[in-house]
Design a protein around this nucleic acid. Sequence first.
DNA 1: TTCGGCACGCAAAAATATTGCGCCAATCTG
DNA 2: CAGATTGGCGCAATATTTTTGCGTGCCGAA
Lengths: 163, 163
Amino acid sequence: MPKKTELVLDDTDHRLLDELQDDAGRTLRELGEIVGLSPSAVQRRVERYRSSGLLARTAAVLDPTFSPDLVLAVCLVSVERESRRLHEAFHRRLLAAPEVQQVYAVYGEWDYVVVLAASGMAHHGEISTRLLMDAPNVRKYTTLFVLDPIRIGSTIPTGALRT
Amino acid sequence: MPKKTELVLDDTDHRLLDELQDDAGRTLRELGEIVGLSPSAVQRRVERYRSSGLLARTAAVLDPTFSPDLVLAVCLVSVERESRRLHEAFHRRLLAAPEVQQVYAVYGEWDYVVVLAASGMAHHGEISTRLLMDAPNVRKYTTLFVLDPIRIGSTIPTGALRT
DNA sequence: TTCGGCACGCAAAAATATTGCGCCAATCTG
DNA sequence: CAGATTGGCGCAATATTTTTGCGTGCCGAA
């Protein structure tokens, strides 16, 4: 469902996407100087990423050290594998919560990896109860509390992109 | 080290930061309509976040489904707990690799959660061997391959921010 | 070789971001 | 308690950036 036009990415696109993932707050002129294009050419490329769905959105990244009460946790979740309907309901439930940073469906003993960000332990307890413990099809889960968020971010290696 | 001015955040700031984390690609006018401020007032607030360091940067978020060869994996790592020196060497080793998306030090049975992004299975094998198997103080690790990256991102709940 | 399509740069136009200014409310200060 | 000060606001002018129209040149296919 994302692919619209079969977009082809050249080397310049890769560099541009790398730069945008690193800092999307620059002007078209600055980006153009980096990759060797005019502002309008950069604009048209970026517009193509956007309309194709490759570029999903641009987001502000806050410094986590500004929230001393922040509680990060990695939850491993195992669910009843029966109903597709319940699966989707579980997805929606997770995605609706702003505290849910990441959700990965994984192979193996566990079914989901969920990263939660809460403000304070009480908050964490509340949302993990609501999202996981009270979920109808969650069989079991375990919580790994984060001691130190050594690195956060979600930069996709552009080499992996469809050329 | 982050605090420059002791910045105070009111309710409007929280809403604004939420919106910026969700989509920073909107105009000051649109943001102003959402939070009930004029464009210039919004601009001044955002500038305050920036100069204080709270707002670290704004980044483009790509849709991972556009890279068919992308192999995401969540690795749970247990290390020998002895030397601090080895710990730091392990950190450095991980942070130096661009394929390492996230690293969390966690409490409990496991010591680290590492999210890897590779282009292709061969690539994945290569980096997990280099980063984990060959590391001197890694005792054991297990790999959870990602079937579906349902949500990625790193949004901090604004309630956790220092007021 | 010629014809299209495509991406480019340039320049004009539209929109947005930035800044100066006066105003008001809340808070100090004497 | 009154006057002064500070901080944030909206408005409007200005500066900058984004967007779009247009002509050009470079391939690839006929």
